[in-house]
């Protein structure tokens, strides 16, 4: 739309309208835009509503034409059936434990590494940093089988507490997290902060722990969301590693419902609801921060 405004004054955001037809076209195109956006928003949200509806019904009242639109009253029956064959709460505890401990370790090691790359000059720093970034480009598929072997040799496939380690330990100091923390620390922390502490004779680790860590909480929060959600939803690696039902994390347990309850769709979907709920609730409570945390890496990384 070519619009010429008089030079000098601020080019206003208000589009100068030259005639009525332009306004009509605008209104039409904005109606189409709203229609498109609303349709896609409904498509995005409907499957979740369907999940809730079906998780409260027995199969007979799920498989109807038209499909049910509101929840039914069989949620307790579905629940009792769900927990009768699979230790679903134990599976949830496994997921909380694995994702929680892994996330805490990621925050520690990545902020420590990011701090070193951002605020110290040491021989080989830039080369090591480039090397670290290059490792991000390697597709994970390559390491699956040797990693599985390695876990067996380490005894980490035994179905006791050691079985958590393959899910917790690899990746606690990961390239993305260190990169992410470095970017933030470089832009947000002035050098005077550390210099003052050094003059006072503070230990280097003490400077990180007491001075740096408290002021980088926004970046830590974003990394925590990103990491926790990734771990919570992770499926392939746990599927390879976990053999005992009591050790399953939620996604693996949920996948096993498909054969356990092939004809009980309500039970399957109740399982899905429980698996989704914790992360979805956090998302709904702080959608803005959540989205920033999950996508900022893409923007900074690009």
């Amino acid at each position: 739309m070519a619009t010429v405004t008089s030079p000098g004054d601020t080019v206003s955001r208000i589009e100068p309208k030259t005639g009525g037809h332009v306004r009509t076209v605008d209104r039409l195109s904005s109606a189409i835009m709203y229609l498109l956006l609303t349709a896609l928003a409904l498509i995005s949200v409907y499957p979740f509503w369907w999940m809730i509806v079906a998780s409260t019904r027995r199969t007979a009242t799920i498989l109807t034409i038209p499909p049910p639109a509101v929840p039914g009253g069989a949620i307790l029956q579905n629940y009792n059936e769900l927990v009768s064959q699979i230790p679903y709460w134990r599976n949830m505890i496994n997921s909380v434990l694995v994702a929680g401990v892994h996330t805490a370790l990621v925050l520690f090691f990545c902020s420590l590494g990011g701090y070193a790359f951002a605020k110290f000059a040491f021989p080989g720093r830039d080369k090591l940093f480039a090397l670290m970034l290059a490792t991000m480009m390697i597709p994970g598929v390559l390491g699956i089988i040797p990693s599985f072997m390695l876990m067996r040799w380490l005894g980490w496939l035994n179905p006791d507490w050691r079985n958590y380690l393959p899910l917790i330990i690899p990746g606690v100091a990961n390239a993305f997290g260190i990169f992410w923390m470095r970017q933030y620390i470089m832009s947000a922390i002035p050098d005077d902060l550390m210099d003052a502490a050094r003059i006072d004779g503070a230990h280097e680790f003490g400077i990180y722990w007491r001075i740096i860590l408290p002021v980088i909480t926004p970046a830590l929060a974003a990394l925590a969301i990103f990491t926790f959600m990734g771990k919570w939803n992770d499926f392939f690696w746990p599927l390879v590693i976990l053999k005992e039902r009591s050790m399953y994390t939620l996604p693996v347990a949920l996948a096993s419902l498909q054969s356990l309850y092939a004809n009980e769709l309500g039970v399957q979907l109740l399982g899905a609801t429980i698996a989704i709920a914790p992360v979805m609730i956090v998302f709904l409570m702080s959608a803005r921060r959540f989205m920033a945390g999950l996508t900022a890496g893409a923007i900074k990384g690009a």
Binding site: P47, N233, P251, L257, L269, A272, A275, M280
Partner: peptide, 10 residues
């Protein structure tokens, strides 16, 4: 935000 396994079940 939802796990891909849950999404596949749905």
């Amino acid at each position: 935000v939802a796990s891909s396994v849950a999404v596949a079940v749905i």
